[in-house]
């Protein structure tokens, strides 16, 4: 196995009395693709937000390219709190460099393509803005054209506002924006869930092509096992904040060992789908868990 580009270990996050993420650890190989599967409340989205730095873990570490991410984040946060005119200029530029370096480690694509772009900015401007921040010396117009081409959009879309584009086109733009930073890891949080089936297939194929072309690693957060099968090498199944099963995607889907994974698989509509059976299995699982939990 190749050197891991992303190492998540012992992640824990508590909201009030609710343990959202409970001792979550996994690694992703360089250029690899990991699926994180779970239902609502499984903690998969919180895990994603911790990886990209939108949330901070109560315990555990996230390392990308061998660099400890959360540690650096905490330092930056400490400095942020004391923000004011007295803060030296050098500290500010140091923080800026740190922020940019963190952004180049990992980027994220969000679920809702209708809300993940600034509604006022034309697509080209939005891309140029990212390029100006991260690659100030580059040839921006040429790179914008290249990025749009990579995600299957033409220069006509560069002048359009988000509202002039379809959901699939917007999601392509969101992917282009993430790629503009040139990250090592891309976190996709239900990135195709809001799209129509025919558009979803286009985006999934695009993502597969980009991985082959750029060697970028994916963390694919999703509830859809069909999607997992389509774009990931490995998978972890999360339930109530904890990982209940992990392994190569083909193996887990063909021969699940945990009863919850089996329930998930059985719940996917297809030949032999029996809602009564699924309902019974779900109740049985909940009861078995209730017995295990100490009162």
């Amino acid at each position: 196995m190749a050197e891991p580009v992303l190492e998540v270990s012992g992640l824990r996050k508590v909201f009030g009395s609710q343990v959202a993420v409970d001792d979550v650890s996994f690694t992703v190989a360089a250029g690899g693709s990991l699926g994180v599967v779970g239902e609502s409340g499984s903690g998969k989205t919180t895990t994603a937000r911790i990886i990209v730095g939108l949330d901070h873990a109560d315990a555990g570490t996230v390392r990308i390219d061998g660099r400890d991410r959360d540690h650096a984040g905490r330092k930056a946060r400490g400095a942020d709190a004391g923000r004011g005119p007295s803060v030296a200029r050098s500290a500010r530029s140091g923080r800026r460099a740190e922020r940019l370096a963190r952004a180049r480690q990992v980027q994220m694509v969000f679920q809702d393509p209708f809300l993940s772009l600034d509604p006022r900015l034309p697509i080209g401007t939005a891309l140029t803005e990212v390029l100006r921040l991260h690659h100030p010396d580059g040839d921006h117009p040429a790179r914008v054209t290249e990025l749009l081409d990579q995600v299957g959009l033409g220069t006509r879309e560069a002048t359009a506002l988000p509202r002039g584009l379809s959901g699939g086109q917007r999601q392509r733009v969101a992917i282009a924006k993430a790629l503009a930073v040139e990250p090592s890891v891309l976190v996709l949080d239900e990135a195709v869930a809001a799209l129509d089936v025919s558009v979803q297939a286009q985006i999934l194929n695009l993502l597969a092509d980009l991985r082959a072309e750029l060697g970028i690693a994916y963390v694919f957060i999703t509830h859809d096992l069909g999607v997992v099968r389509c774009v990931t090498d490995e998978v972890v199944v999360m339930r109530r904040g904890a990982i209940v099963e992990r392994g190569a995607t083909d193996m887990v889907l063909a021969d699940p060992s945990h009863s919850y994974t089996r329930l998930l698989l059985e719940s996917v509509p297809g030949p032999g789908w029996d809602p009564q059976l699924i309902t019974a299995a779900r109740r049985a699982l909940a009861e078995a868990e209730a017995e295990l939990t100490p009162r």
């Binding site: 025919s198 286009q202 597969a208 069909g226 083909d250 996917v268 297809g270």
Partner: peptide
């Protein structure tokens, strides 16, 4: 085409058949 574009558990992994255009 709609059936072919749906990522499914009982289909082989790999590229999906895409409906071009919109």
């Amino acid at each position: 085409a709609l059936l072919a574009a749906t990522p499914r558990l009982d289909a082989p992994a790999g590229r999906l058949a895409v409906i071009p255009g919109r």
